[in-house]
Design a protein around this nucleic acid. Structure first.
Lengths: 226, 226
DNA sequence: CTGTCTCATATTGTATGCAATATACAATCG
DNA sequence: CGATTGTATATTGCATACAATATGAGACAG
């Protein structure tokens, strides 16, 4: 096979991607009103694919729709954040349970390579830091080869990406090296094939990040009220 | 307040419900081609709400869509069934973890009442048996008050409902009392506040049901090939 | 008879037009 | 002046028309 599969990318999917990244990158802010006609104009497509995209984004928990009023960028409460991260912990523990006895040296190498690249990205303050962070977890989840798990996890991660933008705003001097430390701990647990250590690490990490994000959404909420 | 809230139910939602129940009740069979125009005629609505409904149902894993070819009722492989039930186990264990220390006597009463009614429904071979079975688990999951968990669980359950129809076909003399026994074991674990017992019970139950359903989808697959 | 090409048909993907609904503000009544 | 009602506007929900694509049958060459 010299060529890779060409798959048609519908307008609907393109619209989803545009809006999703706009939310994750903070160009669309929580509670912003997403007017179909406006998106239609900006993207040069008709309302149909826009509407369908918004339906998908609502399923992903990135926007909320009110009948005859329209779609709004979702606002996360501290409670929402807590739920998102406990669910993430559950899903990643489940993934760990499935893969911990099946990772090979090549897997560890790949993961450590990702950590190294993330470290370098932090050094140059690269925007890729968060993408690399996500790749680390994604690699593990995908290894589970559990389609449902992967799907549910992807949804959660999109929501997390949205609140991480708020964290970056609320905690501008956030120490990105914490993530390096976290990932090292996770790899160590996998290498030792120590499931309880992995679960403990996941729990600790997600509790901390959840706390940071709860602070961020509270800050964002107060900022909006004023 | 003398009146209760009126909430508009969109055509889209109604179409979703119709197709969903048609799949769960086996009127739409795995791999059936769902033609938008056909649904349009039968339901007396335009293609727009039908299309939007199909998009939602695809997210729910009940139909699959192929570009320019249309939607088909999803066929489950044994692997799919295994994944569905391991995910269900994970989610229900998570729910259990959250609620096991907070259930009250009223909760136990309600759950035992559900079991009793399910027993009676079995005796008269009532069609409600499966709805009551579902209610039992739903009550527990909802108790978690974890929106994300509830949402993900609902999705899974819809898929399970679809394969349970196949089980009923493949195993016509299935002993519904097994479910009574299962639920009793679950309540007992909750009453003892014994999380590991609950996890063990969930694991055992879901493994068995998964096996039954895998047999069912294999049977259905062979039947379709011939 | 077999394989390839062409073309007709069925179906989805997208665009657009119309109807229904929510909201805000002006008008009316007490 | 306050409360309620009518009306205008913005926006979505739905219907329909058109364009693009996939599929299958038949023509035709080998």
């Amino acid at each position: 096979m010299t060529f890779s599969q060409i798959q048609p990318v519908s307008l609907r999917e393109q619209v989803v991607e545009q809006i999703r990244t706009a939310i994750i990158e903070g160009r669309l802010r929580p509670n912003d009103h997403i007017v179909e006609a406006s998106i239609t104009q900006q993207l040069g497509v008709s309302r149909t694919p826009v509407r369908e995209a918004l339906i998908l984004l609502e399923q992903d928990g990135l926007v909320v729709s009110q009948p005859h009023r329209g779609c709004f960028v979702r606002t996360f409460t501290p409670r929402d954040v807590a739920d998102i991260f406990t669910m993430r912990t559950t899903l990643e523990n489940f993934a760990g349970e499935r893969i911990i006895d099946h990772l090979t040296e090549a897997d560890y190498q790949h993961l450590e390579d990702l950590i190294t690249r993330q470290q370098q990205a932090i050094a140059v303050d690269d925007i890729q830091v968060r993408a690399l962070d996500m790749s680390f977890h994604q690699y593990l989840v995908r290894k589970s080869q559990h389609e449902l798990l992967i799907h549910n996890w992807q949804q959660i991660v999109a929501q997390i990406a949205a609140v991480l933008y708020l964290r970056a705003e609320a905690i501008p001097d956030y120490d990105e090296n914490l993530a390096i430390h976290d990932h090292t701990a996770i790899i160590e647990a996998y290498r030792q094939r120590d499931l309880s250590a992995l679960i403990a690490a996941n729990r600790r990490i997600n509790l901390r990040v959840a706390g940071e994000c709860q602070y961020a959404v509270e800050t964002a909420l107060k900022a909006r009220k004023s």
